[in-house]
């Protein structure tokens, strides 16, 4: 791999006496789909919060295209080209699905006091947002308030909303969890399309079939440490991984 898009080095986060993440290193290349897996409490979501700036690392560094981004506030990191979804969905409940996406399209403007006074209610912004919703399979719910949509729709709305920010990297926090099989397949197609458009994807996933099928490589965390990294097929055979995680979970999955 040449120059990575995102590099995490020695990333550590402690909450009081609890170490949620301990000296974790990995990198994501341009156009790569990288899966972050591990049992509950392994530190996956903490890792996402650190990358997106919701939490600040106790130690270690995060670089985006060589630029150090740890310590920046979330809105600055989003403007640098990293979009994310949330494990517990966070829609703008009283705005329509369409307005949720339009709001994200203001990302180029929110940083400038001069550019936030023009109207967002024009045909061009609506059309852009409609296309994004359609890509996520949400065209028919565009006018409905996001707060009334079912979970399957909300997970896709989160992705549609994150796309405006995700010029370089999209972070998906368990976007597939709680979905039925017929909802998962189109979502996988969507993620592949996003990658094909040149955006790297880092995803947290508990559904092993999805993680194995979708990701180029996997990084496995356990108790805050990285225990394995590599192509899916390799990681799957790694004894440490089987012991920590796949041994129990995947066997149960397969049964």
């Amino acid at each position: 791999m040449s120059e990575p898009l995102l590099r995490l080095s020695g990333l550590t986060r402690r909450f009081g006496g609890l170490t949620a993440l301990e000296a974790v290193d990995f990198a994501i290349g341009p156009g790569e789909i990288l899966g972050l897996i591990g049992p509950n409490g392994a530190g996956k979501t903490v890792c996402f919060h650190l990358i997106s700036g919701v939490l600040k690392p106790t130690a270690g560094e995060i670089h985006l295209e060589g630029r150090r981004i740890d310590g920046l506030p979330p809105h600055r990191i989003a403007r640098l080209g990293i979009g994310r979804t949330f494990q517990i969905v966070k829609p703008f409940a009283r705005l329509s699905a369409l307005e949720n996406v339009i709001a994200s399209q203001g990302i180029e403007r929110y940083g400038s006091l001069a550019r936030i006074w023009s109207s967002w209610t024009n045909a061009r912004e609506r059309e852009r947002a409609r296309r994004r919703l359609a890509e996520a399979g949400l065209a028919e719910v565009a006018p409905r308030p996001a707060g009334v949509l079912p979970l399957g729709h909300l997970r896709r709305l989160e992705i549609a909303r994150a796309l405006a920010a995700a010029r370089k990297l999209l972070l998906l926090d368990e976007s597939f969890s709680g979905l039925r099989h017929e909802e998962i397949v189109p979502l996988e197609t969507l993620v592949r399309r996003i990658r094909a458009a040149g955006v790297s994807v880092l995803l947290i996933e508990h559904n092993m079939r999805v993680a194995m099928g979708l990701c180029d490589r996997l990084v496995v965390l356990d108790h805050g440490r990285k225990i394995a990294e590599g192509p899916a097929a390799e990681v799957r055979r790694n004894p440490a991984v089987i012991e920590a995680y796949l041994g129990r979970r995947h066997a149960a999955d397969a049964a």
Binding site: S52, G53, V54, P73, P74, H75, R76, A78, R79, G83, R84, F86, K90, P91, F92, A93, R94, L95, E99, I102, A103, S104, G106, I107, E108, R109, Y110, G111, R115, I116, W117, S118, S119, W120, R161, A162, A164, A165
Partner: peptide, 23 residues
């Protein structure tokens, strides 16, 4: 205008608003 939409987003979900570049 965008300023108003940013305020709405903030009112609804602060963390998600920050995630789309709203300070």
């Amino acid at each position: 205008c965008w300023a108003g939409l940013a305020c709405f987003a903030l009112r609804e979900e602060e963390t998600a608003a920050a995630g789309i570049g709203i300070s």
